[in-house]
Each structure stands twice: as C-alpha cells, then as structure tokens.
Design a protein around this nucleic acid. Sequence first.
DNA 1: GAGTGGTCTAGACCACCTT
DNA 2: AGGTGGTCTAGACCACTCA
Lengths: 245, 245
Amino acid sequence: MFQTDSENDSAEPHYLRLRNQIANEIEAGILSSGARLPSERKYHELIGSARGTVREALSQLEAEGLIYRKDRSGWYVSPKPVTYDPTRWSGFMTYVAEQGRLPATETLQVKTEKQPPAILDIFGKGVRNPLYRVERRRSIDERPVLVEDITINPALAPGLARHNLNGSLSGVLRDVYGLVVTRNHVEMRACALVRHTAECLGVKSGTPGLLVIRTSYDARGRVIEYDQEYWCANAIRIEVDLTVA
Amino acid sequence: MFQTDSENDSAEPHYLRLRNQIANEIEAGILSSGARLPSERKYHELIGSARGTVREALSQLEAEGLIYRKDRSGWYVSPKPVTYDPTRWSGFMTYVAEQGRLPATETLQVKTEKQPPAILDIFGKGVRNPLYRVERRRSIDERPVLVEDITINPALAPGLARHNLNGSLSGVLRDVYGLVVTRNHVEMRACALVRHTAECLGVKSGTPGLLVIRTSYDARGRVIEYDQEYWCANAIRIEVDLTVA
DNA sequence: GAGTGGTCTAGACCACCTT
DNA sequence: AGGTGGTCTAGACCACTCA
C-alpha cells in the first residue's frame, strides 16, 4: 500500500505530497495571490493526514515564501515581493510606489535611550550616550512587511521627534538638518522574526525574515542613520547592478 | 521589568523557553561553535516536554541561523557566517580563504542541455539552444554550504568541460577564453532548500536558504555566466559598501 | 460563538548515520 | 546494533480572530 520502494511514487512523505499539491494550485492560479487557503482542519479532512502533517506542509511553503500566515487568522498566498536596490538612493515610499504597490509607514516609538557599547562604536568615539531611537512599521498594500529600528545621534538632529516621521526620514534629515548621505554600508542576512518583531508584524515567532542593516554616513564620515530593518522574507527581493569602475 | 503578563513567567510557551535556554548556552560558549547538541530525546528527558515540543524549539533556532542539522546525524551550533561582498570581484575560493576559512569546490555535473525560454531570454536573441550547465558544491571548513547551477553559452567557451572546474570558473573563462566580466547583476532572496538542492547539501528539505543569482556580462553586453547559488542561510552574510558617484 | 491557528502530549515506526 | 533525526497519528485545550 505504501512505501514499497520499487517503482511507486509514495517514497515521498505525505507532507511533501501536500506541499506539491498546494504549490501547483498556486502556480496554476487556482489559489491566487493574497487568497486565503483552506483551514488546516479542512486539509486534514480532505487528505486524511493528521493535522501536524498538514502543518508541516504549510510550514514548508512558508519557508519557501509561497504562503504566509496571519496569526490565528489563516494562511494566505504571498503576493509578489517588491524589489529593493540598495544602490539606488530612493526610499521605501518611493520604490514601493514605483512598483505599483501601496506603501505606508507608522511610527511606533520615538525614544531617547542609552545604547550599549556595540552601538556606540558604530557612531564613533565622540558620541554622547543617550541616542534617539525610532521604531517604525511599514506596510505594502495594507500588509505589514517590515519593522525598523533607527538609531540617530541627537547632536546631529536635535528635536527630531517634533517632526513627522511617517514619511521619508532621510528626507527630514536632509531638508531640516542639512544632513546629506554620501556613503551607505548595507548588510543583509537571513533571520527569523521573533518576539517583539514578530508581534509588531502580526506573525508567529520564527517566521522567516531578512535583516537589512544600513549605516549611512555623510561626507565628513559621521554616522547619520543606523537602521536595522526586519523584513518578512517573502515580501522582499534584493537586486543590485554593478559595473567595473 | 518587561511586559510579563501579571508577574509570572509562564506566559512564554515551553518551546520558546527551551529555545532561550539553548540560545543562552550558545552565547555563553557552553555550547561552542560546531559543537553537537544533546539529542532531541535527551532534551525530552531533561525538560519533560514532548519530543515534538523540543523539535519546535530546535526549528526556531535553525530558522534564526543559530544551529543547523546534519540529516539524521544531529543538531550542531552554526559556525560564524562568511561575509560576501558582491561588489568585490573576488571569487568564493578567495574571499573564504581571506576570512581564515577553508574553501572547497566539487564539480557535481557538467552537461549540455536544452534550456527553457526563460533562461534563453537572459542570454538574448542570438543563442543556440543547447547550453552548458555546470553544477558545483562548495564547502567551508568541510561543511557543504552552497550548491550552484551555472549556465554558460558554449559559443563563448567551447570545450569548457575539458578544464578543471574545481577552482575559479571565472578564472578559466578569463584566462582560457578571454572573457572579461565588466558588469554583474546580482539578485538575492530568502528561500528554502528543497528536493535536489537539500539532498546535495545533506540537509532536510525546507532548511532556510538564500538564493543568490548572478548574471555576468562582458563589455559587449554578452552574458558570460548565469549563476544560481543556493546557500545555507546561516553560512552567509551579505555586505555592500556604497558611495555616491 | 464558531472557527482558526498555536501549543502540547504520548505514543509509533522508519531510514539512516555512527561506531 | 544502537542511536539519531524524519515522519506520522490522534487526540487535547487554549488564545485569538472574525462575523
């Protein structure tokens, strides 16, 4: 009946079988972008596998970025990711809109806080310790896709909190404080969204994420912004174009 | 001190409790880089939770990149990731060695194969269909961390298979065929390692991965290499430094 | 209030790695 | 051969969302 290796097709575990079925339905458009999947219990009834096995299949698809979950609401087909090019200097609001999507930003917190040595090191020897810390959540087409944590030296931008931070922060720094970025250091790595970050985005702890850390410097080598962006992994794609000098 | 509901500490699920314990032990060096973790059944005995719960904790840590598994062998603490800078033109063998690690390359397959239209489009109108396809596995300190699938136009590099491909492929293309890369297009996105790729790397299907796609062009705009690299997510970190022109 | 996912238990058998 | 992770079952209760 099952798993006689020989010429059968059941060498594949049940959860991969279901994964493939759902993946095919997504590709074929039977399940379209943004659509909600049948519930775990429905799949359980349909295919007869235990719910745990069904969840295994769904987790796979999530890890691959094909679907995502809204906490305790259900599983949904992932929309097309937006493309982010760190070599272009346009901000989130701009490049998301350029791709025909609806960007939004909410400022969650602005605080003045003592930073650990690791952070101070980035800003260099001269910094006075309490620094600004801005936390923002950004969405694409109403879906939260990233939380960012921006550290800023108050000496360079006194009274920053009085301005509207729901648009382009670099815009404010440039137009109000005359801070012009001439160098960006960008670091990226796969991560998991956990705890606070997961909560902010309304996803389960452990959801696949991408951490993008950007450090912006001005012409005098001062750090203007230290920005840690936690992205839902399936919402973003990085693209860079490089030519020899 | 921080948002515990009421004042207890059991708001946290068991699996996160175990996750934190292990994470702390890694940070404290009790479990050192490369070390093997106690078995799932050992943890089950130790903390009394069901094995499924233990696995949930381990999966979290895996998603975060702190640990990885060798199929049916055990769980291990992830070594420090290597840094990859797509703007530098040095190859894998070079930059891994520069970071004091031991790089290795194995050529798994070289074949001449008909490509689907999507691939042909990348190479442009003029290509004659069967293209070279080179599959390689690369390791750091004896651990396989990436499989790559390179597509090359045989018109530009006839008889490529006769050369040693276990070193720098771009080196061969440059030195033997005079093909000089002047432009690189790099794309990155989170993915899961599945099926064939997972098998090559000896990891479970669904392991977190990073897909790096590089397209190299020469001065005349011809595609020299189309390279898809599937990385173990925890083995790599991308770093780019950008200055305004 | 009905339904969803989130967490958890306590087993079982298998394929494979390790020794 | 013994131990490991991989897969799977058949339940259970909870926290939360949604209508």
